[in-house]
């Protein structure tokens, strides 16, 4: 048994739960407040599963963090998804140097154990090859 830490943001297959406006703008995460490009809202915004693939724009190894619950070092990557949006989040390897332009893909990694003993998984990115 496995549970996702943030099931509103991604699936167990590593797809990102984004959205698409009738104007063509693709965004992440899915939301109904309104489109950042044209302001349409409601039924004009439809859920769209994003592939979870993209190119690394930049990454950095973080040495210092105020929240002690998040141990350093860890690496933050900025990824331009194939579907359009740019996301920033943790990479799987905490200290790996990855060249900008590298093809990246989502991966689910265990980050804890639930009350029922099941693994809790969170989404990260890693180089595709």
């Amino acid at each position: 048994m496995e549970t996702l830490l943030k099931p509103t943001l991604y699936t167990s297959e590593g797809a990102l739960l984004g959205g698409r406006c009738t104007c063509g703008h693709v965004f992440f995460p899915m939301q109904g407040h309104g489109c950042e490009v044209c302001g349409r809202h409601g039924a004009d915004l439809q859920p769209m599963a994003l592939t979870g693939r993209g190119k690394l724009l930049s990454s950095t190894v973080v040495h210092l963090h105020a929240d002690k619950a998040r141990a350093t070092p860890f690496t933050i990557g900025k990824i331009a998804l194939t579907d359009g949006p740019v996301v920033r989040t943790l990479l799987v390897d905490p200290v790996q140097q990855i060249a900008p332009g590298t093809e990246m893909v989502t991966a689910l990694v265990p980050v804890g154990t639930g009350d029922d003993g099941s693994a809790i998984l969170d989404l990260r990115f890693k180089p595709e090859h």
Binding site: K6, I76, T89
Partner: peptide, 16 residues
């Protein structure tokens, strides 16, 4: 919700 904004301080944004 967001993926990991709590892990991204201002200095991390500018380090990127």
């Amino acid at each position: 919700d967001n993926l990991a904004e709590d892990a991204i301080a201002q200095f991390t944004h500018f380090s990127l």
